[in-house]
Simulated assay, not measured.
Amino acid sequence: MEQQNEQKHVQKQFADGAAEEKLPAEKCSEDINQWHNKVLSYKHLVRRWTAYFWGINKAFLYSYEDLEQTIWYILMVGLQEFDGRGDEEQFLNWYIRNKVVSIMMYGKKPPKCTHLPFTPIRFDYVSPDELAEVNELFYSDGEDD
């Protein structure tokens, strides 16, 4: 009888332990869902800035989708950077605009992107002003002058 009680006690402890182990995983899943919903709640900002920057810079960009992915990335970094002061949407609006401008105009890397930087900007773009120099550098026939 005592042995059965002991066995039930051990089984109960094991069952409680298993329940405790599931709790952090469930909490993690819940946190991921909340983060996902929060990011998606700013879809209108991503669409607006993607359309805006595509409209004025499409000659310099790989594709609309690459620009959109970059802006989604910047939005997520902006959400992590937001410290709770002021309006979150206004901060993100400012953050996305400034980061995309710094990427396009000044050739900066996206924020927190150090090891494997990515960019929506085409590297094969050549302005008409630089066309002669590029032709001389890359399309020579191999003869030295």
Rank of each mutant, 00 (worst) to 15 (best):
Glu20Lys: 13
Ser63Lys: 09
Lys12Ala: 12
Asn5Ile: 12
Val126Lys: 11
Leu79Ala: 03
Ile56His: 05
Ile32Phe: 10
Asn135Lys: 15
Gly55Phe: 03
Gln13Gly: 02
Tyr42Cys: 01
Val77Pro: 01
Leu61Val: 06
Tyr73Ser: 02
Gly84Ile: 03
Tyr95Cys: 02
His36Asp: 14
Val77Glu: 06
Leu61Tyr: 10
Ala19Tyr: 08
Ser63Leu: 11
Arg47Asp: 13
Glu68His: 10
Gly84His: 04
His44Cys: 07
Val134Thr: 11
Met1Ile: 03
Glu26Asn: 09
Thr50Ala: 10
Glu68Cys: 05
Gln4Ala: 13
Glu2Asn: 08
Tyr62Arg: 10
Pro111Leu: 07
Pro111Thr: 05
Ala15Phe: 03
Lys12Leu: 12
Ala132Glu: 15
Gly84Tyr: 04
Phe123Val: 04
Ser140Ala: 11
Cys113Met: 15
Thr50Gln: 04
Pro24Ile: 13
Leu45Met: 03
Phe91Met: 07
Leu45His: 05
His115Leu: 13
Pro128Cys: 06
Trp94Met: 10
Ala59Glu: 14
Glu30Arg: 13
His115Val: 08
Gly142Lys: 06
Glu81Phe: 02
Gly86Gln: 08
Asp141Asn: 10
Asn33Cys: 08
Tyr52Lys: 11
Ile71Thr: 02
Val100Thr: 12
Ile74Lys: 01
Glu26Pro: 00
Asp141Ser: 10
Ile121Ala: 07
Gly84Ser: 05
Leu75Ala: 01
Cys28Leu: 15
Gln13Arg: 15
Ala15Met: 06
Ile56Phe: 07
Glu21Gly: 00
Tyr73Leu: 03
Phe82Arg: 04
His36Gly: 01
Thr114Ser: 14
Glu6Cys: 06
Leu116Val: 07
Ile71Gln: 01
Trp49Asn: 02
Glu89Met: 10
Gly107Trp: 05
Ile121Gln: 04
Thr114Leu: 14
Tyr42Asp: 01
Pro111Met: 05
Asn5Ser: 09
Asp124His: 09
Ala15Ser: 08
Glu26His: 06
Leu61Trp: 09
Lys27Gly: 01
Met104Arg: 09
Phe123Arg: 15
Ala132Tyr: 10
Gln80Tyr: 09
Ala18Phe: 07
Val77Ala: 06
Trp49Pro: 01
Ala25Lys: 14
Glu2Ile: 10
His115Pro: 00
Leu131Ala: 15
Leu79Arg: 05
Gly17Asn: 12
Asp124Ala: 11
Tyr52Met: 04
Ile71Arg: 02
Asp66Tyr: 07
Gly78Arg: 00
Asp144Gly: 01
Asp16Ala: 10
Gln4Thr: 09
Val46Gly: 00
Asp66Cys: 12
Phe118Pro: 00
Glu130Arg: 12
Asn93Gly: 09
Ser41Tyr: 07
Pro111Tyr: 12
Glu30His: 13
Gln13Ile: 14
Ile32Arg: 11
Trp94Val: 03
Trp72Glu: 04
Ser127Leu: 02
Glu30Gly: 04
His9Phe: 14
Cys28Ala: 15
Gln34Val: 09
Ala19Trp: 03
Lys43Ser: 13
Ser102Ile: 01
Ala51Thr: 11
Cys113Gln: 15
Leu131Gly: 00
Ala59Asp: 14
Gln7Pro: 00
